[in-house]
């Protein structure tokens, strides 16, 4: 378990820097001017640290045995996501810097925070809605694909049946041919037998004839 203990220590480190970044980020909106910029830089620094630790954990995770790896992997993913979220909010704050300068800090803060909240919620709602739509789209796609697959399957089964019929037919034809071959072999065998018999008979006749001729000759010259 030494490998996972290393991972756990990294995890503790990560939590530390993550919390630091989070608290600093939440305190930024209170600040103004130079300290604000400093705080931002601080947040950025701890965030970089977070990313670094995540990278380390990523490497460390290779050493963990496969059956435990999935839980660590999911942990790591949530960390990554959290840090990404943090980075996004920081970026937004930085982007708003110009607006803030323009509106003046007091005005921006008063109107801005509540507006920001509503905006955030709206944003979240919209993104949720979008992801819902995406998933329903994906569902529709998959059911369509499933139906298409079913169709293709039905067609394949049909083809299989016709091919089966073709194969049976070829088998039948083949066995028929086999029968014919058997029959012809039998015929050829009888033919050879008859031929041998015929040959024998022919020789016998020749022998008898020769005998007769000899007899005739003998009777003539005797």
């Amino acid at each position: 378990m030494s490998e996972s203990s290393l991972f756990n220590s990294y995890e503790a480190d990560f939590k530390l820097s993550f919390n630091e970044a989070q608290t600093k980020l939440s305190s930024i909106s209170e600040l103004d001017g130079e300290p604000r910029r400093l705080a931002m830089r601080d947040v950025e620094k701890s965030m970089d640290e977070c990313y670094e630790i995540i990278d380390q954990m990523n490497i460390e995770i290779q050493n963990i045995s496969t059956q435990h790896r999935s839980t660590y992997n999911s942990k790591l993913r949530t960390y990554q996501k959290d840090t990404d979220y943090l980075k996004q909010s920081l970026k937004k704050l930085m982007d708003d810097e110009d607006k803030r300068n323009l509106f003046g800090s007091n005005y921006y803060r008063d109107g801005g925070v509540s507006g920001n909240l509503a905006d955030d919620q709206r944003q979240a709602l919209l993104s949720n809605n979008a992801s819902l739509e995406r998933s329903s789209e994906r569902l529709r796609d998959s059911s369509r694909i499933a139906l298409e697959t079913e169709d293709i399957g039905a067609n394949i089964l049909n083809d299989l049946r016709s091919q089966r019929e073709q194969i049976t037919n070829s088998r039948n034809t083949l066995s028929e041919a086999d029968n014919y071959v058997d029959k012809s072999i039998k015929t050829i065998k009888t033919m050879t037998r008859r031929m041998a018999a015929n040959k024998l008979i022919t020789y016998a006749i020749i022998a008898v004839l020769i005998l007769l001729i000899v007899l005739v000759l003998i009777s003539k010259f005797w």
């Binding site: 399957g153 039905a154 089964l157």
Partner: peptide, 11 residues
């Protein structure tokens, strides 16, 4: 009646 072809019947 055939297991292989009954899937196409609905078509």
């Amino acid at each position: 009646s055939n297991n292989l072809t009954k899937w196409s019947t609905k078509d």
